[in-house]
Amino acid sequence: MSAMLRLFAHDLKLQLRLGSDLIAPVAFFVLATLLVPLGVGPEPNLLTRLAPGMIWVTALLATLLALDRLFQRDFEDGTLDLLALAPLPLEAIVLAKVAAHWVTTGLPLLIAAPVLGLMLRLDHGSYVTLEVSLLLGTPVLSMVGAFGAAVTLGARRGGALLALLVLPLYVPILIFATSAIGAAGEGLSPRPHLLLLASFFVAGLVLVPFAAAAALRNALE
């Protein structure tokens, strides 16, 4: 456990020192969402209807933007070889790296989202649900993305392949997250949708470390 925390702190430190890594996904998230009112016009009702979907679609793409750095650099400079041989299981390494990745990509999205909601005239009743859906959903994006990044590691043109592999897997998260926000906007309970998101989170937590570790072992051989 302490080795896992060490790796998490180490990865976090590395990503925080590369400031551009930290800023790029959240800057993309904000700018891409801000383009929507410019494109479709400032009509309030239309924006309110579009807001949950737009915020979530750009959140998906912003996460995708940061995925290739999850294992790629460590793979190229030999660090991944050493981590695979370190005294903690590769599954624990995957989990520590995903956690560090989420803190530097998912968490900033969580912080920026309410501001974007304001600009897109999100329903007043939907903010809490928006934040809860992001809190449950973005870690799943990081986990599923880690699996995709591990599978495409070492492939030529891995980036395009990664998007093709991962985006379809993101669909259920997108559907239930936006349904939750929509339900809250109409005064209905978002609870069932959020519970489904929570179940994705738990399933990811259990399955992804094993699947990603197996893919990494294959890439290193």
Partner: peptide, 21 residues
């Protein structure tokens, strides 16, 4: 495998030195 990982230190062709650390 746990014992295997505990006893090995490996130096490959790459140095795995991080530029930011």
């Amino acid at each position: 495998p746990a014992r295997h990982r505990e006893i090995i230190a490996y130096l490959g062709h790459q140095d795995a030195v991080k530029s930011m650390l």
